[in-house]
């Protein structure tokens, strides 16, 4: 979609150049992310890789939510012109939740277990929109309706353990999108959900992000799902961005091809063995790079 591609600097939400995230002593650092560079406009960008590829660390580093033991350095990391690297913690904290939102894998761990979900969404309206009392509850109810929860009034009073995983993730999306953030980072938002609700939740997220004209970074190990929802996909392997593709058919890197081939498919004749990644080849490629 040409309208979605970043054409001018004002459309560009995120500008990242040479981002490194390292763990361990500075004499012998372990690179979780090495030399990540990309731009994001008002579009949907997928980041794909195996566990340990650095995809989640990258998402966290953008929000500056990396663990204390990690060192983050970058030639440039700007969000709508603001330099995220030099921003103080207080200013960063204001940005989080209002301009940039993070949606995590499992709603059970992200929601407060001892508070009804309606109250938790209303709190977001109070903090970020400055609403009070009834107005914040009404905003919460509207948002729950927007994420297509049928019985809004009843759901508002339920505790996180009383709702299903799919509903919990809708509540999380409602909380995170209430303030119409410019950038949404979704880290495996549907991995904990049933396949049957997975597509509903993703379609919902996709629609809301489109309506708000926000940018979306969808982090997942499921390259087929990401290809279905994103305009561009960055493939990460061992902390490095190895390839950027716009469709599965345009993949060229052996790692990306290996990931696609390893997924069982119902199409074509059933293979005796599923193709597996040639890790030796990949290790050689990494060394020579």
């Amino acid at each position: 979609m040409p309208a979605d591609t970043p054409t001018s600097a004002s459309d560009r939400l995120l500008h990242v150049r040479g981002l490194d995230v390292t763990f361990g002593r500075s004499a012998n650092p372990v690179f979780a992310v090495k030399g990540a560079s990309f731009d994001l406009g008002r579009e949907r960008l997928g980041i794909v890789g195996e566990s340990g590829s650095g995809k989640s660390t990258l998402g966290r580093a953008i929000m500056r939510l990396h663990p204390k033991s990690a060192r983050v350095t970058a030639d440039a990391m700007r969000f709508m012109g603001t330099d995220l690297m030099s921003l103080g913690e207080a200013a960063m904290s204001r940005l989080r939740g209002s301009e940039i939102s993070l949606i995590l894998q499992d709603p059970r761990y992200s929601l407060n277990p001892v508070q009804p979900v309606g109250m938790q969404i209303a709190e977001v309206a109070e903090v970020h929109l400055g609403l009070k009392g009834k107005a914040s509850r009404a905003a919460a109810a509207d948002m729950l309706a927007a994420v297509r929860i049928r019985d809004v009034e009843r759901t508002m009073g339920l505790y996180p353990h009383e709702i299903s995983g799919g509903m919990g993730q809708r509540v999380m999306i409602a909380m995170m999108l209430l303030n119409k953030p410019k950038l949404v980072i979704a880290d495996e938002p549907t991995s904990a959900l049933d396949v049957s609700v997975r597509s509903d939740v993703l379609t919902l997220l996709d629609n809301l992000v489109r309506e708000n004209a926000s940018g979306l970074i969808l982090i997942s190990h499921d390259i087929r799902m990401v290809a279905r929802f994103c305009d561009r996909i960055i493939v990460m392997y061992a902390g490095r961005m190895v390839e950027e593709i716009t469709s599965l058919a345009s993949a060229r890197h052996p790692y990306t091809l290996g990931l696609i081939a390893a997924m069982p498919s119902l199409d074509g004749p059933r293979p005796d063995r599923l193709p597996v990644l040639d890790r030796q080849l990949l290790a050689q490629m990494k060394e020579s790079a």
């Binding site: 195996e50 566990s51 390893a262 063995r273 599923l274």
Partner: peptide
């Protein structure tokens, strides 16, 4: 992971 899943499925088969 999908790549590891393929290896384990092949083993099971």
């Amino acid at each position: 992971d999908v790549s590891v899943q393929a290896e384990v499925l092949n083993l099971l088969s």
